[in-house]
Simulated assay, not measured.
Amino acid sequence: MSVHVLYFDLIGALVDPAALTPCYVDSLARMLRARFGGSAARWHSAVRGVFADWDSYYADLNLSGDDGIADMWEGMYRVMRGCFRLADMPEPDQPSLTALSRSLPGDAAAACDSLLPDALDALNQLGAKGIRRGVTTYLTADHARGMLRGGDALALIDAPILTPETVERFERDPTYFEIAALRAGVKPGSCLLVSARTDVLDSARAAGLRAARRM
């Protein structure tokens, strides 16, 4: 059976996390300062502090549970609120802070070209062969699209961008990848997943997809 759709695990297969993190931290801090004032040093210190203590913002949340998507949004809200608190800046009201927590990550990511060096060539070569290109990620859709825009890759994605809120589950288990094939409109065996993560590769294979490790 031929491969008709190739899904990239966004972080690790298309985006280099080592290149992304420092740029994203800087971009997020600059955008917060531009909107809310304060010193650049204070915002940069706050954002770095949030990233250093990231797990604590999600410690009591169960992203794999029945309320995983709600918990994901709650975690994002806490992260954004943490930036204001560590910067010692007045917080916006809850609706405004909620909206900011969902929109600003994508805006900040769009300011960063963090694609792996061979990513654009790979996407173009697949397109030339008629293989559709999709993305799977634990990030939100806006955040994922921002990363792809930052690397001038969004226009090359012509298969689904699968995110927790679009699939309605955070855990990338076999059911998730069954949905991936359905969303692409092909049989699982016609989908190939490329990822650097063993657990994600195993789930894809359990759903009948082909899977290849990104080295």
Rank of each mutant, 00 (worst) to 15 (best):
D71T: 11
P117L: 11
L156Q: 12
V50G: 02
V167D: 05
D9R: 00
D173W: 07
I131S: 08
G185T: 13
P92E: 03
M89L: 04
I131T: 15
T98Y: 11
D26M: 06
L139Q: 07
Y138N: 05
E171T: 12
D199K: 13
R81N: 09
T21M: 13
A180D: 06
V167A: 10
L28P: 00
H44L: 05
D16T: 09
L61Q: 10
A207M: 07
A46Q: 03
R210K: 10
D88F: 02
R133H: 12
P90Y: 09
D113P: 04
F177N: 07
A70V: 14
R149C: 00
G82I: 09
V135N: 01
I161G: 00
L104N: 08
V79P: 01
L10G: 00
R133K: 15
A29L: 13
L139N: 04
Y77S: 15
Q125T: 06
P174D: 11
R172Q: 14
L97E: 07
R149P: 01
P188I: 05
D26K: 02
H44Q: 14
D67T: 14
L209C: 10
M72A: 05
P188T: 04
D66V: 13
A40P: 01
A155E: 14
T166Y: 04
V25N: 05
L123Q: 01
D202T: 15
G134I: 05
P174S: 04
S96W: 03
G38I: 09
L104F: 10
W54Y: 14
I69C: 11
T140I: 02
C23D: 06
L126S: 09
L182N: 06
Y58F: 15
